[in-house]
């Protein structure tokens, strides 16, 4: 199952690496990742596409929410059921 995650992140040194590193360390492949500015220069928005089952997704979401600079994590949509 493919999932699109939207993460609001404080724009701190190394914040992006910590998010990407968390996914790598927990064996999650990121299919795509975009970083966008928001109207608050202190906050950026990451959009990630990942695949995995519901339980694995739930666990990585919870781990992501433990990162200090993460403001919010939401699952935007579930797209199809094929593995990219």
């Amino acid at each position: 199952m493919r999932h699109t995650l939207s993460i609001l992140l404080q724009n701190e040194a190394g914040a992006l690496v910590r998010v990407a590193g968390l996914f790598a360390a927990r064996s999650h492949n990121i299919d795509s990742l975009t970083v966008a500015a928001t109207n608050d220069p202190a906050i950026s928005q990451l959009t990630l596409v990942v695949h995995g089952d519901e339980d694995t997704l739930e666990q990585i979401l919870r781990q992501t929410r433990k990162l200090i600079d993460v403001l919010d994590v939401i699952t935007l949509s579930l797209v199809g059921d094929t593995v990219a």
Binding site: E12, A13, G14, V17, G21, A25
Partner: peptide, 16 residues
């Protein structure tokens, strides 16, 4: 250090 420790610690700050 912020890369290395970022993967190991609860949090890491690089004070710029």
């Amino acid at each position: 250090i912020s890369n290395i420790m970022g993967a190991c610690a609860k949090h890491v700050f690089l004070v710029t």
